[in-house]
Design a protein around this nucleic acid. Structure first.
Lengths: 365, 365
DNA sequence: GGAAAAATCGCAATCGGTTGCATGTTGCTC
DNA sequence: GAGCAACATGCAACCGATTGCGATTTTTCC
């Protein structure tokens, strides 16, 4: 930037406008305000931050100028001298997924209430991207970094990724919605196990015994926990676990659709299926309809997440809800508390609620 | 921040770790690198930015240290002296809406490729929020601000909002996906009129004449354009426009559902309905099913946006697609070009493609 | 009324970079 | 080998805030 002629704090000229073309106004600084108010920049800074004594008369004089010029302090400069930028960096696996969108929103709202700003980035689940963005946030000196889904959940690539995160943790607190072993970061996550329990209990109460589980990769922590619980609960009831009923895959429509088609290839089909999430459930619904059966009369379908998808399918889905506002708030609060060295609980799990809608019913004979 | 003892650029100590507790590492700066490399900070800066001559030997010496310490230049400091932060601020109406999510993602990907970072904020359509966030971005000195949907589309509150935006435009380029009259900001938007034309032609080709339009507020620019085209095309065909067939409302599931129920209250029902977007279409589908009719046999349903929703409904929706990657790229490129004073086209419209799926068919008798 | 305590407020350093200017160095040309 | 352009590199100012220190003014209290 070219140095401005004269010393700091030149006079504030009239807003620039030149023969039709918009001209950038000179950005005004505390020096400008200070000069016009006849005080020192320090004083302006003090009325800005508010935590110091300034004589009433001067305070008002300065405040008026601030209002008059619609002055906003430069966050970069502030961050530079403060070491606190009051900003959080979020890396989300895929913001198009309604689950992440909901969490992000809640998180962002909470952060905002606490006076923090949020930067978002989508990793699209590519590791390089994720690491790259974490670096970018580090450059920007965000006070904390939040990882929504993505690699934090993946037990396989976990090792090398954890390595990187571990490195980052040494300079910036990191909170993840998954589990990263032996890494000093905060974890705030859904109690996947409890959610599965609710779903299974619900199905049992309807007399289901042949229950399938479709979608999700077992190397993802939350999915693994779900499977563990699924398996355990069948055993508790003395029901033989049928390996063919567990079809792993992804977390989208197609995975649900393909998975259910696989199920239909079996000689004995289940009376109920648990989808890994609402998204997959929609694919499952489609497959069932295409096979000429109906939900829940022939087959019950339940899923996780209670995103808005579960209300717009036909039939509406029975799912588990997480109170997104609460979830998001916990994430934001944890991140901020960590940023402010208030040592938050390093591991928080949030509960779930069963939401019964139309897609589940008594087991067919 | 407490001043560090000694002069600038103390020696780099070993990574801090203390009886189990993680300790923040000292953040290293170009001064540290400079000292250890035995050169001046200017030189380090020069190898960092790359656009200056540095003797090969020194360049390598510095580069090695940068790698060794995994040094990342402080973006705040850089932004302070540069006046370019290479960051964009995005204010989205509601990121949970798959349309905005898709646009945002595309936009973000494009910006990233161009070396820019993105900050996101959700206005949830509340004006104060929107203005407040714009201010926040201004403080952060983002090089440009992008407004996705929200108030930029609203013709009513437009006046006062435009006032504010006009103010912002004087310091930061603004690009909107709508239309803001008499405001010096860039507009990149869907050709809503063309999209409607494709939908109507498609329906006409199936012999439909009694066509309803459900959802959307006429005081929103894009919706108004759609309605204008809808109306004009009926007239072209010499079809009398039935006022009761135009049911305005919101842009969500409920609006579609309620709107369609209203239609069913009429004595003569339409043979086809155009939903304001995929979201509303899902509600319409529900209403039709509940009335014991089927799509598209009894009624055809078409909509706008081609979000992933249109593929997971039963039946899958016929909609208009926008090539989101292209759309997002245009937005990002416009914003960046403006930021770099390269005067981009102030008004760009992106075309649409009809995607025929299962929800439309011949008019029933 | 006078002294100590408290409130004001400016100076100047600092955060971590970038860059114009000035001062060498090198390399080329003839 | 002289002359000159291009290259290298350091110094110091600057971006726009914050803040400790110390000087000055007010208040408060006996």
């Amino acid at each position: 930037m070219k140095p401005v002629a004269g010393t700091r704090g030149a006079l504030i000229g009239p807003a620039g406008q030149e023969n039709g073309y918009v001209m950038k106004d000179k950005t005004i600084t505390i020096y400008d305000i200070a000069q016009e108010a006849g005080v020192s920049p320090s004083t302006v800074s003090r009325v800005l931050t508010g935590n110091a004594h300034v004589r009433r008369e001067k305070r008002e004089r300065v405040q008026n100028l601030i209002d008059k010029y619609n002055f906003v302090p430069n966050a970069l400069a502030k961050g530079l001298s403060d070491t606190m930028t009051r900003s959080l960096g979020v890396v989300a696996a895929d913001i198009r997924n309604p689950f992440y969108a909901a969490v992000f929103m809640a998180c962002e709202q909470a952060a905002e209430r606490l006076g923090y700003t949020i930067g978002l980035f989508n990793s699209l689940n590519r590791v390089e991207n994720e690491e790259e963005q974490i670096e970018k946030f580090r450059q920007q000196k965000t006070d904390a970094i939040i990882l929504l889904g993505g690699r934090v959940d993946d037990l396989v690539t976990n090792t090398q990724f954890a390595e990187h995160v571990r490195d980052v943790c040494r300079t910036t607190p990191v909170v993840v919605t998954g589990k990263l072993d032996r890494t000093p970061c905060y974890s705030v996550r859904i109690d996947a196990s409890a959610a599965m329990r609710q779903l299974m209990d619900h199905l049992f109460s309807f007399g289901h015994e042949r229950i399938a589980m479709i979608g999700g990769r077992l190397d993802v922590t939350s999915t693994y926990e779900k499977y563990q619980t699924y398996s355990a609960m069948l055993h508790e009831r003395g029901i033989r676990e049928n390996g063919e009923y567990v079809v792993s895959g992804g977390y989208d429509y197609q995975s649900g659709y393909d998975g259910m088609n696989r199920i239909f290839a079996l000689r004995e089909r289940p009376t109920a299926v648990v989808a890994i999430n609402d998204f997959a459930a929609t694919g499952i619904l489609r497959s069932i309809i295409e096979h000429g059966l109906s939900v829940p009369d022939d087959i019950s379908v339940v899923s996780f997440d209670n995103t808005y998808l579960s209300e717009l399918t036909i039939p509406k889905l029975t799912t588990t809800d997480y109170d997104y506002d609460h979830f998001g708030r916990l994430i934001a609060e944890t991140a901020i508390a960590a940023a402010e060295h208030r040592e938050p609980d390093p591991e928080v799990r949030v509960g779930t609620t069963l939401v019964v809608r139309e897609s589940s019913g008594p087991a067919s004979v």
